[in-house]
């Protein structure tokens, strides 16, 4: 990060942001990872609605949901709320 730091002449005025947050990955905060059982999943789309981090996305092309582990912080809300128990939280690296 340090090498990216710019001087006052090179940044927009007034503190206007110049990077999208999507370039900042929060996935490495995670200790538990949600893993979906595709056989159980009914694609009810509850989990994308209640994910605080937009880390569960609906892929229109494949008609399926996708976990974005670049951003998933591993809170476990999706697994806890899944009405058909299709998501399990698994320890990272286990």
């Amino acid at each position: 990060m340090r090498d990216e730091q710019k001087g006052w002449k090179d940044i927009p005025i007034a503190g206007v942001c110049w990077k999208p947050a999507t370039e900042y990955h929060t996935g490495d905060w995670r200790t538990f990872k949600p893993v979906r059982d595709q056989a159980k999943c009914t694609k009810c789309l509850l989990c994308p609605m209640i994910c605080p981090d937009t880390a569960i996305k609906w892929n229109k092309a494949t008609e399926d949901i996708e976990f974005d582990y670049n951003f998933c912080k591993g809170c476990g809300i999706c697994a806890h709320e899944c009405p058909v128990d299709a998501i399990k939280m698994v320890r990272e690296g286990a």
Binding site: A21, T22, E23, T26, P52, T54
Partner: peptide, 11 residues
Amino acid sequence: FTSGHRACAGC
């Protein structure tokens, strides 16, 4: 409101 915000897990 996109990913990459730094709210705590489970916010």
